[in-house]
Nucleic acid binder design. Sequence first.
DNA 1: ACATTTTTTTAGGCAAGCCTAAAAAAATTT
DNA 2: AAATTTTTTTAGGCTTGCCTAAAAAAATGT
Lengths: 219, 219
Amino acid sequence: MYSYTEENYLKTIYKLSEQGNQSINTNSIAEVLQTKAASVTDMIKKLADKKLLNYEKYKGVALTEKGRKVAVDTVRKHRLWECFLYDKLKFGWDEVHEIAEQLEHINSELLTDKLEEFLDFPTHDPHGDPIPTKNGVIKKSNFILLCDAKPNQILVMSGVADHTAVFLQHLNKISVVLGTEIQITEKNDYDGSIAVKLSGIKSMYFSKDVAKNILVKVK
Amino acid sequence: MYSYTEENYLKTIYKLSEQGNQSINTNSIAEVLQTKAASVTDMIKKLADKKLLNYEKYKGVALTEKGRKVAVDTVRKHRLWECFLYDKLKFGWDEVHEIAEQLEHINSELLTDKLEEFLDFPTHDPHGDPIPTKNGVIKKSNFILLCDAKPNQILVMSGVADHTAVFLQHLNKISVVLGTEIQITEKNDYDGSIAVKLSGIKSMYFSKDVAKNILVKVK
DNA sequence: ACATTTTTTTAGGCAAGCCTAAAAAAATTT
DNA sequence: AAATTTTTTTAGGCTTGCCTAAAAAAATGT
């Protein structure tokens, strides 16, 4: 239906909208997609012709409902494939993204549905991101950043704000995975670092850089 | 590494070579790939430049060892994905080919290896075709055509010569699947039809068209 | 052997998706 | 408000993979 490239543009615009930006500008799309502004303008025109987004010269773009559906479906497929790679093929959570970038473009509604069933209708991917339903509904998670959480509560590691492989590998090294219980024992205003207790046992320090990229919920 | 299109050309040339043809001509490639002879000449030149095949003007082409490896690996991935779709996602054997045509181009050696392990190292795909090993070795099956088999022996349905969805659906309808026991009770020279007994119970007739597209081995 | 048909290649062109360089519009600074 | 900077768009060009039409080579028929 839509090309690999078109789907990637739509997905990128969708994700930029989610991050609060109202209307998405050419340069930010170019940056995410590692391409040039002129190429983005070309593609934007094409997608506007196909009614996938609204575009007014020099004013940025916004997805139409049609465009949003395509984008969300691509995200859905991406996250389902990540679950498959992680749960069934035993890939690490730092390895699944790249392969899912390819798999998300496989075109078969029946395949997506059967995959979802095979995985037992997962609600979140291996990074804690919610999986859109077939109808395009995404349940907003009520996770908070670890750096914003109150001390002493028992928190459950539920997701990441930084999805890069290096960050995920760092979390592996310090044994923080989805489901790990975290209790903040001390907050340092000076550098934003925190002292934590993991699974009620292991005490350690998290730098602000780490604390601001871990999503938790109160147990 | 190689594009979707390049892999499809190599796979097509490989399959035409397997069917006995020594050197593969332009028109036959065009026919399989549903394209024009001029386009094939274009691509052949490109693949020859990349040392994936040997090409002499007007003399047809033959894969190099390098080209054969790419082709066989594509076949390997295709058949492994077919197993996944059939065994794990419960697709019918008439539905798996089309989706595997997309999945076979996913580029990750680790993924292929982990998929193979997850499927428990299958040796044959849902149509009875052998799965190449990681090193590119394909075990030649010693299956024979049902129409060439001797009467009264107990035969085991082991593969198909015709891979079209209509034929596979027809086999579904008459309850012939991989593993079904078939005994030829009568051969009719006039029209090539045969009388068979399925699983030692059900008697029925197979037309020559059916009998010549079923592969069996002697039990 | 020569004429005809078939196959293959060449030539030139098109769409998708990318690029650079230049122009135009918008935003920012002074 | 004018000048400067940044952002965006346009113009023109590239590669990949496809096409049609015409030319060239090979195969076939007489």
